[in-house]
Amino acid sequence: MNKPGALALVTVVALVLMLAAAACGDDDSGGKSSGAVQTRVAPVLVAINMLDSAGLHAIDTSITQDGKIPSTAHTTAVHLQAAVLVTDWPQELKDPAKKLAALLGDFAMAIDTDKPDRKKVTDASNKVHAGEHDFSHQVWDYLAKEAGLTGGDDTHAESAATPSPAAAKIQVTDVTARPTTNDVSAVYFTVKNPGPADRLVKATVDPSVAQMAQLHTMVTEGATAKMQQVDGIDVPGGGEVVLKPGGFHVMLMNVQKPLKEGDSLPVTLTFEKGGTVQVIAAVKTLAGGGMN
């Protein structure tokens, strides 16, 4: 099983346990019964687990980096589209679900020809991949809420590597990666944090992309500059932190295949309080000194 799939399964198990625990509490206080909660969320759990572990990441990587459309891609897209359409999503997820189904449909159509247009297929695949990540976030936020997890008590969410409601507030934008000129690269982005102070503690990429990813900074001592690994990068409450050339960056090492301008690269960021955030880095040439 691929890593995202395994992660999703662990998360499902954890949430089901939490739901059960929450339901027990409800029994005592005469609230909603465990049966009602589970009946309502069961189809959501099934569908999101299927989406999260369907291998969209691997499909997108194969298309974007190798220019190869996996033989299973079309079936996967069609099945997922059907699953998204038949699932009885709660009201707040109905529209996002429709959008994702449309993206899956576009993708299936783009590859269902004798001579697929590479640019079109890549674009559709990137959109499905990113769209699934976005949708997954919203679904897990909903499930966390159903499980009775609130921003003040996110210890369970953390251990389950699930974004808690607080995490949903962290926004990561302008995610870029440097094209490779050998087997290293750097990823840069902006983290906006309207919530309480947090800390970026880890960045990971699929080992098929790069075998190691570390948080680094640049330290200048006299005439010398050097890179240094850091344990974490503080994100001030109500503020932002910018990872940019000449400062903080995520260093990728042992990059497995060249990253070229126009490629995209999924990155998972882990925040101390906010849990994980999935982002897609656009590979492009970055300059240090901008034009003022």
């Binding site: 190691m212 006299g222 005439a223 010398t224 050097k226 890179m227 090492m253 042992n254």
Partner: peptide, 24 residues
């Protein structure tokens, strides 16, 4: 000559390392 001292290596694991270089 440039006041950069000895070449300095930082081990990054798995055979990777960083090297101190010019600040400008």
């Amino acid at each position: 000559e440039f006041g950069m001292g000895e070449p300095h290596r930082t081990d990054l694991g798995s055979g990777n390392y960083a090297v101190s270089h010019a600040a400008y």
